[in-house]
Design a protein around this nucleic acid. Structure first.
Lengths: 357, 357
DNA sequence: CTGAAAGCGCTTACAG
DNA sequence: CTGAAAGCGCTTACAG
């Protein structure tokens, strides 16, 4: 008992100051200190000043755990992204965090490596940590993930796609429309003989939408994209490199290769080079995302620009609004950009020489 | 009063189950449920099973705010990075988060854009959120930042540099030694006439160390790096582009340009191209970091590889260990790699033509 | 090994 | 406008 009391005594002097310490110093009740912190307008000026002084004097900061316990609000949001290695996700997160910081929220981040099970696990952790809102990427998630978040009764939105699924608000771009535009541009250049490299193994909904856009544009011209013209793969530079070889070997008449991401296109560029093909003279190659690298490559990459920062910033605002009772628009379609650079040109006239070596 | 009671009744059925609900269902005291959760070994098997079943039946998850309030542990770590736009930081964060997740910690992330004031502000937020540990990048931080963290009495470490400052444990590489090796390699190729592009405006300690390494190697050969040979700039591709023009214009005899980061080197490569200079035939250019882009450029970039993933993973382990009472080594120097690619060659024989256009 | 009780540091009806 | 009191959902000495 005596020991306990002493321990408490030590704590009071050495430990972090508590609300009570501020109250004592300012000669008011703890309730008043709390009010100064949370609803300053309902406290008389005089007391407000006394309390403020005491807070500064003790350099008091409220304990967030206690605060969260009472208010049922952690002032923390959670996000799960497939990876940070792609600059559009890195940029989006950066903007999300910056904006949240301005709104006085912190950001809990998790990476799932394009693995839906892992995403569920991370979402579970986030909900257990009591986040006030959740941001995911894309529209394909495990059923349990949706359920879990719904049970939490927490604002939730999906990013990088504009199409809402399962009534979850979405902020992003119309992927199908973007690849449709890209394909129309290539058709206008005169291309009729296409190959596609698509990371269908992962992030399935965005890739699927991108494939749909390509096919729609081709069909309008009476062209059909045969299965042999589509390489399905995972998401890596290496897969792009392999993909272009596969396509050109199987279909030497191909003049244009559409990749569903820039990462794949970077690989395709390298693969074309390895085959002795000049881009864009011998082969046109396009990407999607406009990663930082795209403009710096030789040739620079024709691609679709995604407004990643804008997505992140908007996501932050929408979550904060939702908590304040303002509903999140079910679908927010942001403008994308068709960025024409050096990797696209009119189709070559002559057939391809058989690959050297 | 009646209303209040009713509200409570509703809550008990509709809201999240609490520890007490589990206890009631399992016919034990709340204390026992808590023990099953935290110290299962001191609970009799039979009760343990009953409690476990009740937990599953109610799909109970403990409230972290309450838990944190009692245990003084949030099971959350915090990290502040200069940016996520550089792949080495993105990779490091990814590895840090993955490992923390395995250790059942969550990660609060903040970005400071190379701004020390902003870093302090974000650290302040992290400490107020009650993180159990903090990771920063590099060794140059505001005095207040160190003080703040010290007061928090929370494990703290610095990453990407191996040199410990202010007694803060460091995990990273020896930057000076890395650029020393790089410079020696260039000297061995025959270069004697150097220029340097350095982002001295930001992340000062790492850049400073890198400059020191360069100068040490040169001095050993009796060479001096004059001030006109060093372009001081901020961190962007554009600055690298500008830097190389400045250097070559002022000193046409330069044969080799050392950049303190890959981002600058990417700009330098583009700048050289714009000047009509071939790399590496006319000009040798080197970077630092081995960002993803480095291998894909044309020419590919000679650079220093930093073990970012390893740094992140180790940081997670060290923080967790520190909480368990195992002290963090004051300095952990990880191996870097000199990666020789296509942007470096022997110096040209002839003087540079005056820049075309 | 288990339960009753106190308490972590706050917030917010309630009563003045 | 302010204070005394209850309580948020847990954990952990303490006593059995």
């Amino acid at each position: 008992m005596a020991v306990h009391a002493q321990a408490k005594g030590v704590k009071a002097t050495a430990g972090k100051p508590r609300l009570e310490d501020v109250a004592r110093m300012a000669n008011v009740s703890p309730a008043t200190v709390s009010r100064v912190l949370n609803h300053p307008d309902i406290v008389r000026q005089e007391l407000r000043d006394k309390v403020s002084k005491a807070i500064v004097a003790l350099s008091y900061t409220p304990d967030n755990a206690a605060r969260a316990l009472m208010s049922r609000r952690s002032r923390t949001m959670g996000v799960v992204v497939p990876t940070l290695g792609t600059s559009i996700f890195a940029e989006g997160i950066e903007a999300l965090q910056s904006r949240l910081s301005e709104l006085e929220y912190t950001l809990l981040i998790a990476v799932c490596q394009y693995d839906a099970e892992r995403e569920l696990q991370e979402v579970r952790t986030l909900t257990e940590r009591g986040v006030d809102g959740i941001v995911l990427v894309g529209g394909s998630h495990l059923h349990e993930t949706y359920e879990l978040i719904r049970r939490m009764q927490v604002p939730f939105l999906t990013t990088y796609v504009s199409e809402s699924l399962n009534a979850v608000p979405a902020i992003g771009i119309d992927n199908a429309s973007a690849t449709y535009d890209m394909t129309r541009y290539l058709l206008q250049l005169g291309h009729r003989d296409f190959g596609v490299i698509a990371n269908t193994q992962s992030s399935s909904d965005r890739t699927r939408a991108r494939l749909i856009g390509i096919k729609r544009a081709l069909e309008e011209e009476g062209l059909v994209l045969e299965d042999t013209r589509v390489v399905n793969c995972t998401h890596s530079v290496e897969q792009g490199r392999r993909g272009v070889k596969e396509l050109v070997t199987a279909n030497p008449s191909i003049t244009s290769v559409i990749c569903t991401t820039d990462t794949l296109a970077v690989g395709a560029l390298a693969g074309a080079r390895a085959l002795g093909l000049r881009v864009p003279q011998d082969l046109t190659i396009t990407g999607f995302d406009d990663i930082e690298l795209a403009a710096q490559l030789e040739p620079s990459l024709t691609t679709i620009g995604t407004p990643a920062r804008e997505i992140g910033r908007l996501a932050a605002d929408c979550l904060a609004n939702a908590i304040a009772g303002i509903p999140i628009p079910i679908s927010t379609a942001l403008p994308y950009q068709l960025i024409i650079r050096g990797s696209t040109a009119k189709p070559r006239r002559k057939p391809l020489r058989p690959p050297p070596r």
